[in-house]
Amino acid sequence: MFGLTAADLTAYWITLKLATVGTVVLVVLATPLAWWLARTKWKGRIVVETLVALPLVMPPTVMGFYLLVLFGPHGWVGGLLESLGYRHLAFTFTGIVIGSMFFSLPFVVHPLQNAFASTGIRVSEVANTLRASPWDRFVSVILPLSRRGFLSAFVLSFAHTFGEFGMILMIGGSIPGATKVASIAIYDHVETMNYGAAHSLSLLLVASSFILLMLIFALNRRYKVAGMA
């Protein structure tokens, strides 16, 4: 299809799977952290916020290197897994999913934190007067009011993972059918002077990104119109 090989399509599929799985899991896990950061008055919060924002300024290869050490057979996590009879996480799909979640953390936490902060405390207090439980208040009131924040978090995380290269290459390598994503496949094509294949795969990524953004803008406009109605 359009000069794409089976290996290119496999790399593209792995990219989509990585971005989707990593984003969905990260949004679920990061929501409590974002809620806590939006509500807590603890002075030490700045330390947590700094750690969350660290991937914004840290070179991808640096984070990938330390995750490789951590997840490898001699690292804390990888060594523990192997002692329990499991395989370490370096150069595995699970490893690059976890790595992408660490690297995309600020792109999820910050939009959610801002969305939760913008809802204000007054809304929860009103729901409390109606005898709504904390969980009911969060699900029935806070989440609907924060849907645009969730939409932004999903888009930013998905797009960030979709085009990631350095961190994934460090922790996952370039294993066809397992950890070789589209960005790495493009790099390999360029290295072998196969510009036609690199061009075809790059166009596929550009088209996918365009369609994703167009859908997001359409949903965002729909939410905005519904909110004004």
Score class of each variant (00 low, 15 high):
residue 144 P to H: 07
residue 221 R to A: 11
residue 39 R to V: 10
residue 141 V to H: 01
residue 196 G to H: 15
residue 218 A to M: 09
residue 147 R to N: 11
residue 183 S to G: 08
residue 213 L to R: 09
residue 2 F to D: 12
residue 50 T to R: 08
residue 184 I to C: 00
residue 195 Y to F: 15
residue 137 R to S: 03
residue 32 P to H: 05
residue 103 F to T: 03
residue 78 G to V: 02
residue 158 F to R: 04
residue 137 R to E: 00
residue 86 Y to V: 09
residue 46 I to L: 15
residue 128 N to M: 09
residue 29 L to S: 03
residue 149 G to F: 02
residue 9 L to F: 09
residue 147 R to E: 06
residue 53 A to D: 10
residue 89 L to Y: 04
residue 226 A to S: 10
residue 14 I to D: 10
residue 186 I to C: 04
residue 79 G to D: 01
residue 194 N to K: 08
residue 114 N to Y: 11
residue 160 H to G: 05
residue 67 L to I: 07
residue 113 Q to W: 06
residue 214 M to L: 15
residue 99 G to S: 11
residue 139 V to M: 12
residue 215 L to N: 14
residue 139 V to A: 10
residue 226 A to K: 11
residue 183 S to Q: 06
residue 84 L to N: 09
residue 30 A to Q: 02
residue 49 E to V: 03
residue 186 I to M: 09
residue 211 I to V: 08
residue 140 S to E: 12
residue 160 H to R: 15
residue 65 F to H: 06
residue 229 A to K: 15
residue 94 T to N: 11
residue 75 G to R: 07
residue 152 S to H: 08
residue 10 T to E: 13
residue 148 R to V: 12
residue 194 N to I: 08
residue 88 H to K: 07
residue 137 R to L: 00
residue 48 V to R: 03
residue 109 V to C: 02
residue 136 D to R: 00
residue 160 H to T: 11
residue 16 L to N: 02
residue 225 V to D: 12
residue 28 V to L: 10
residue 208 S to A: 07
residue 126 V to C: 04
residue 187 Y to W: 14
residue 52 V to M: 03
residue 49 E to A: 06
residue 139 V to K: 13
residue 150 F to C: 01
residue 179 T to Q: 01
residue 56 L to Q: 01
residue 48 V to F: 05
residue 112 L to C: 04
residue 104 S to G: 10
residue 34 A to L: 09
residue 185 A to K: 11
residue 193 M to I: 14
residue 193 M to H: 13
residue 89 L to N: 02
residue 70 L to V: 04
residue 223 Y to M: 12
residue 79 G to F: 07
residue 129 T to M: 14
residue 142 I to N: 08
residue 61 T to I: 12
residue 10 T to W: 09
residue 151 L to E: 03
residue 187 Y to M: 14
residue 132 A to G: 03
residue 224 K to Q: 14
residue 221 R to N: 13
residue 92 T to L: 03
residue 206 V to S: 02
residue 191 E to K: 15
residue 195 Y to E: 04
residue 185 A to F: 13
residue 104 S to D: 09
residue 120 G to H: 04
residue 133 S to P: 00
residue 118 S to Q: 14
residue 189 H to F: 05
residue 109 V to K: 02
residue 57 V to G: 07
residue 103 F to H: 11
residue 159 A to T: 13
residue 75 G to C: 00
residue 98 I to L: 14
residue 62 V to K: 05
residue 112 L to T: 09
residue 125 E to A: 09
residue 128 N to P: 06
residue 73 P to G: 12
residue 125 E to T: 08
residue 38 A to F: 04
residue 148 R to S: 14
residue 122 R to D: 15
residue 156 L to V: 00
residue 52 V to D: 05
residue 176 P to M: 03
residue 12 Y to R: 00
residue 183 S to C: 05
residue 139 V to S: 12
residue 92 T to E: 03
residue 113 Q to H: 10
residue 58 M to K: 06
residue 206 V to Y: 04
residue 69 V to P: 09
residue 121 I to L: 14
residue 160 H to S: 13
residue 134 P to G: 01
residue 179 T to A: 04
